[in-house]
């Protein structure tokens, strides 16, 4: 299988809807090996909690927007690192 990341402006979008934990996190980490700005979409509440927690600890800048039962998690490498 392949992860398909759509490009939107400067960032790539990883759609993880309907995937159970921990796959959104695993895929996010995989994607971040290839891109520096990523938007992850998930409707899985545990993943919406795990991804920001873990990546913030790892030094990424993370913002989360929640709309219509979906979480959009914006991740980028922190310039201050």
């Amino acid at each position: 299988m392949k992860l398909k990341l759509e490009k939107k402006g400067e960032r790539y979008i990883l759609d993880c809807r309907d995937l159970t934990c921990p796959f959104p996190l695993t895929m996010t980490k995989l994607a971040l090996k290839k891109v520096s700005k990523l938007e992850v979409i998930t409707n899985n509440p545990p993943s919406a909690k795990d991804i920001p927690e873990l990546l913030t600890k790892q030094g990424y800048k993370v913002d989360v927007n929640r709309e219509d039962g979906l979480w959009r998690i914006f991740i980028q490498k922190n310039e201050d690192r």
Binding site: M1, Y12, C21, F23, T26, M27, K33, D50
Partner: peptide, 28 residues
Amino acid sequence: MLEIEADFLSKFIGKYSLGKDGGNGSSH
């Protein structure tokens, strides 16, 4: 569109997952 190889995950998706905890300091 950027494609990233993730073959190692295909045997797990749909067959494995973690559940949500919220006590005793456990999240999953």
